[in-house]
Simulated assay, not measured.
Amino acid sequence: MKKIWILLTAITFALGLTACSADDKAEPEKTEKAETEKAEQPAVNPKSAMYKFYMSIVNTINEADADLNAYEGAEEPTPEDKTAASESAAAVASKVEGLEVPAELKDQKADLDAALKDLAESYNMKAEELKKDAPAFEAADEKFTQAEEKIGAAFESVDMKKPSLAKEL
C-alpha cells in the first residue's frame, strides 16, 4: 500500500511540474505578443507631446537670445550690444521658423503653426528695430503676446493650463 501511495504521489508531482512548466512557456509568448501589439500601436499622450513641443520652443529661443536679453537688460547698452542684439533676434527668428509641430499634435497644429509664425515675426521685428537709432519694441511685444495666446489656446485644448512663454525666456 505504501508503494502505491508513493507511486501516486510521484505521478501527481510529475503532473504538477509538467503543468507549471507548460504555463511558463505559454506566458512569455503572451508577453511577447502583448509587447508587439503595444509597439505597433503606440499610445499618444497629447499633454506629453504638447509639453515637449513647448519646451523645444523655449530651448530653441534660449539658445540664441542671450545677446538680445543682455541688450534689453543693460542700463546703457553700447552700439556693439545693439548690433549683437539685432543678430541675436534674427537668429532666434530663423530657428523658430525651423521648428515643426509634431504629428501627435495634429489637432492643435493650426494654433501652433500660427504661434510659431507670430514668434518668428516678433523677433524679426525686434531685429529690424535694433537697426534704428531709437528702437521701439511695442509692436514686436504685441506680436509676441499674440503668439503666447495661441500657444495658450493649444494648451487649453488638451486640458492644460496656459504657460507663460515670457517668464520662461
Rank of each mutant, 00 (worst) to 15 (best):
66 A>P: 04
142 E>S: 14
137 F>P: 11
76 E>S: 13
106 K>M: 04
133 D>I: 13
166 A>P: 00
25 K>S: 02
87 E>M: 06
34 A>H: 04
104 E>S: 10
130 L>R: 15
150 K>F: 04
89 A>D: 01
76 E>W: 10
30 K>D: 00
39 A>I: 07
130 L>S: 07
92 V>P: 00
86 S>C: 05
127 A>K: 13
18 T>K: 03
132 K>R: 12
29 E>K: 15
92 V>N: 01
136 A>P: 06
14 A>C: 03
47 K>W: 00
49 A>V: 11
40 E>F: 04
9 T>V: 09
120 A>H: 12
52 K>G: 01
8 L>W: 01
26 A>T: 12
91 A>V: 03
143 K>L: 08
60 T>M: 02
55 M>I: 15
138 E>I: 13
162 K>G: 02
151 I>R: 05
144 F>H: 11
123 Y>I: 12
12 T>S: 08
109 K>H: 07
19 A>G: 04
112 L>N: 03
86 S>Q: 07
53 F>P: 09
166 A>K: 15
92 V>S: 00
88 S>I: 06
48 S>K: 11
32 E>P: 03
103 A>H: 06
98 G>K: 10
14 A>S: 09
64 A>Y: 14
147 A>C: 09
72 E>H: 11
31 T>D: 00
50 M>L: 10
147 A>Q: 12
28 P>R: 10
17 L>I: 13
70 A>K: 15
148 E>K: 11
18 T>H: 05
71 Y>W: 12
67 D>C: 02
80 E>C: 03
128 E>I: 13
7 L>V: 11
127 A>E: 07
156 E>Q: 05
127 A>D: 06
81 D>N: 15
64 A>I: 04
108 Q>E: 09
59 N>H: 12
42 P>F: 02
85 A>P: 10
97 E>T: 13
146 Q>R: 14
147 A>T: 15
